[in-house]
Amino acid sequence: MYRSIIMIVLIAASAGAPAAEEMSTTKPACITNVAPSGELAPWVNPVPAKAGSEAANAPLLSVGKATSVTLLPTPDVHYALRPEKPGGSVSYGGLLALDVAQAGTYRIALNSAAWIDIVGKDGALRSVAHGHGPDCTGIRKMVDYVVPAGRYTLQISANGAAQITVLAVPMK
C-alpha cells in the first residue's frame, strides 16, 4: 500500500516537470552583461539624445552609433504615419531621423520590445527579418529592413519606459 502511495506521489510530482528536451533549451539567466561583437559592438557606448515629437524636429540617429533616447509620452508624438502598434496614453514614443548613404539591408537593434517603423517619402518600409539580440547583451529586439539611400524617419512607439537604446547598422 505504501509503495502504491509513493508511486502516485512520484507520478503526480513529475507530471508538472519539464521534459529533458525542454530543460536543455531553457536559456540561463544572465549574471553579467556581455559586450556584443561585430556590427553590434557600438551597443556598449550609447550617446544621449531626445526624441523628436514630429519629423521636422527629430534628431539624427547616426548609423553605426548606439543612442540612448529619451522618449516622449505617446500623446505628445505626431507620427508621420500611424504606427501599427501606437501604444496607449501611458506608453512612450518618439521620432528620429535616419540618413542612409548607401542602399542595403539595415538592422535596428533595441533594448526593449517597442514597435518601430521606418518611414520614407513613399510610406513605411516593410521589415524583412525579426529576431532577438545575442544573449546577455541587453539587445532585446532586432529588425532588418532593405533601405534605399535617402532620408527616413524612424518611428518608435508603444514603449513601456521613457528611455530606449537604439542602434542602426548596415548588414554585410
Rank of each mutant, 00 (worst) to 15 (best):
M23L: 10
G38D: 06
V169H: 02
A41F: 15
V34L: 06
R3F: 06
T137I: 08
P48A: 05
I139W: 12
N159W: 00
S127N: 09
P28N: 10
G87E: 04
A101I: 15
A17H: 03
K65L: 07
L81M: 14
I116T: 07
K172C: 07
A168M: 14
K121I: 04
P75Y: 08
Q163G: 06
H132K: 07
R3G: 00
T25Y: 00
V100L: 13
V143D: 11
L154Y: 08
M171K: 09
L10W: 04
M142C: 08
T70S: 04
A55I: 03
K50A: 08
T105W: 02
D122R: 07
S4M: 05
P18S: 00
G150C: 12
L110S: 05
L40W: 03
S14P: 01
V147N: 01
G16Q: 10
Y92W: 10
E39V: 07
A124E: 15
Y79L: 02
G52F: 02
K85V: 11
A41E: 15
D117Q: 07
M7S: 09
I108D: 14
A17Y: 11
M142T: 11
L71M: 03
G88F: 08
M23N: 09
S127P: 15
T26L: 09
E21L: 00
D76M: 05
A109M: 13
R107T: 12
A20Q: 04
S4N: 04
P36R: 13
L154V: 10
G123E: 05
S89C: 15
V69Y: 00
G120S: 01
P75G: 01
A114Q: 04
A103F: 06
W43M: 06
G94P: 02
G138R: 02
E22C: 00
S4G: 00
V146T: 04
C136F: 08
A56E: 14
A168S: 11
T25R: 02
G88D: 13
T105L: 05
G16S: 09
V63A: 02
S91I: 09
W115M: 11
S127T: 06
I116Q: 09
S14L: 09
D99F: 11
S62Q: 13
K50F: 12
Q155T: 09
M7P: 01
Y2L: 14
T67I: 00
S157P: 13
R151I: 14
A124R: 12
A20M: 10
I5M: 08
S24G: 00
E84V: 06
G133W: 13
I31V: 11
A41L: 15
P86A: 11
R107V: 09
G64F: 03
A51I: 01
R82F: 15
S112W: 15
R126Y: 06
N45F: 08
R126Q: 08
V146D: 15
L125P: 13
P134S: 08
Q102K: 13
R126G: 11
N111C: 06
A158Q: 07
S62D: 12
E84D: 03
K141V: 06
S14E: 15
V169N: 02
K50D: 12
R82G: 07
P28L: 11
A114C: 14
P73S: 05
G104T: 09
S68L: 10
Y2R: 04
G150A: 12
S91L: 14
H78W: 15
Q102W: 10
L40F: 05
K85Q: 13
V90F: 06
Y152I: 04
P134F: 12
